[in-house]
C-alpha cells in the first residue's frame, strides 16, 4: 500500500456521475460531483432526502446496487483509482482500507453470531492474526469504543445490547483493520440525542488518534456543525456549496443553504415563523434545466433557468450559484 504524500488528499472524487437506466430513459442521481477528504478530516455531507448522499457514499465503497452505475468520473483512494477495480479487489479494500457504518446497527450485525465471533472473523479476514490474538484485538476495540465491561460482554449477542451499544459495536467492526477512511451514513439518526453525543465524540476522537478520515452523511445540521471540519451541501445530485463548516453554517452563501439554515429552529432564538423554502426538491425525472434549485429560489433570474452554475471559489467556500457570477452580485456575498 502506498501512503499518500502530505499534499495529496486521502480520497478524491472527480466528476462522479451515477445513473439509473430505466424504461423511460436514464435518471441521473449524482451529476458531476467532485470532492476530496484529507487524512484525519471529517467531511460532512448534508442535503434533503433523495439528494444523492447515500449513493455517493455507496459508490466510494463499491456498494452501488444495480441498476445504479457509475457512468462517469473517478474515485481515487491514496493516489490509486478504486472505481474500476474487479469485485474481489474492491472487497479487499472494503473493510481493510475503507470501513462502513450505517444507520441501522441491526442490519450490519448478524443476530445469530456473538459479538466476539463477528469481530474475530472480520479481524482475521483482514489481518494475519491467530484466533487468540484476534480475540485480544476485538476486546481492545470494544474498550476503545467505550463498551463498559467489555470482558463480560464480548460473548453476548447483538440483541443483548442497547441501540447505542450496538452502534458502538458496528463502529468497532468498521475499525477492525484500522481503515484509512470511514463512510458513516446516518450513523446517529436512529439514536437519542444523549447517545448521539457519545457516538459523535467517539468518531471525533478516533479521527484524531488514528488520522482516520470520515465521510459523515447525515441530514442533521447539528451533528455536522459539531463533528465536521468541512461540509458539502448536496441538492438534486449536485454540490450546491462546500467549505469549512463555520463558513457554511454561519455564512451560508448558496440560497439553498441559506434557506436550510433558517428553517432550523434554534433554542434561545424565539421566532414566530421559521424561514420557509417553498416547494420541494424535484424528483429525478423532473430536475429543471439550469440551476436545479431555480424554481424554489428567491434570487433566480433568466440565467438560472437556462445555464447550470458551476462551483466557484467565494472566500473560503466553493459555491454553485449564478448570484456570484456578476461583479455587482459578488459585492453582496457577505450578507
Amino acid at each position: 500500500m502506498t501512503t499518500a504524500p502530505a499534499n495529496q488528499p486521502l480520497l478524491e472524487i472527480r466528476n462522479l456521475r451515477i445513473e439509473f437506466p430505466t424504461r423511460r430513459g436514464i435518471l441521473v442521481a449524482v451529476d458531476d460531483i467532485s470532492l476530496h477528504i484529507d487524512p484525519g478530516e471529517i467531511l460532512g455531507v448534508v442535503g434533503e432526502s433523495g439528494a444523492g448522499k447515500s449513493l455517493t457514499g455507496a459508490a466510494v465503497i463499491g456498494l452501488l446496487e444495480p441498476p445504479g452505475r457509475i457512468a462517469d468520473g473517478q474515485i481515487i483512494l491514496e493516489g490509486g483509482r478504486i472505481d474500476n477495480l474487479p469485485y474481489e479487489e474492491m472487497r479487499k479494500i472494503r473493510g481493510r482500507r475503507i470501513g462502513a457504518i450505517f444507520q441501522d446497527p441491526l442490519t450490519s450485525l448478524n443476530p445469530l453470531y456473538s459479538v466476539s465471533r463477528q469481530l474475530v472473523e472480520t479481524i482475521q479476514t483482514h489481518l494475519p492474526l491467530s484466533e487468540r490474538q484476534a480475540r485480544a484485538r476485538a476486546l481492545e476495540l470494544l474498550q476503545e469504543v467505550g463498551i463498559p465491561g467489555a470482558e463480560e460482554r464480548i460473548d453476548h449477542y447483538p440483541h443483548q445490547f442497547s441501540g447505542g451499544m450496538r452502534q458502538r459495536v458496528v463502529i468497532a467492526l468498521a475499525l477492525c483493520a484500522e481503515p484509512r477512511l470511514i463512510i458513516a451514513d446516518e450513523p446517529t439518526t436512529a439514536l437519542d440525542v444523549s447517545i448521539q453525543a457519545q457516538i459523535i465524540s467517539l468518531l471525533k476522537r478516533l479521527c484524531k488518534d488514528h488520522q482516520t478520515a470520515v465521510m459523515l452523511v447525515t441530514h442533521d445540521m447539528g451533528v455536522i456543525a459539531e463533528a465536521a471540519d468541512r461540509v458539502a451541501v448536496m441538492y438534486s445530485g449536485r454540490i450546491a456549496e462546500v467549505g469549512p463548516v463555520q463558513d457554511v453554517v454561519r455564512r451560508a452563501k448558496h440560497p439553498y443553504t441559506h434557506g436550510l439554515m433558517g428553517s432550523i429552529p434554534h433554542i434561545g432564538h424565539a421566532v414566530a415563523k421559521l424561514t420557509q423554502i417553498e416547494g420541494s426538491m424535484p424528483r429525478l425525472q423532473e430536475i429543471p434545466p439550469g440551476c436545479p434549485f431555480n424554481p424554489r429560489c428567491p434570487e433566480a433570474d433568466g440565467r438560472c433557468r437556462a445555464e447550470r452554475p458551476e462551483l466557484q471559489w467565494i472566500e473560503n467556500t466553493e459555491v454553485a450559484c449564478h448570484r456570484f457570477d456578476a461583479p455587482e452580485a459578488r459585492s453582496q456575498a457577505g450578507d
Binding site: G164, S194, I200, R250
Partner: peptide, 18 residues
C-alpha cells in the same frame, strides 16, 4: 447533549449511561 449550530466545534457533554 443538544448539538448546537451556533457553537460550532463545541465539545458536547456526552451523557453518561443509557
Amino acid at each position: 447533549a443538544i448539538p448546537d449550530l451556533e457553537m460550532t466545534g463545541r465539545q458536547r457533554i456526552p451523557v453518561a449511561g443509557e
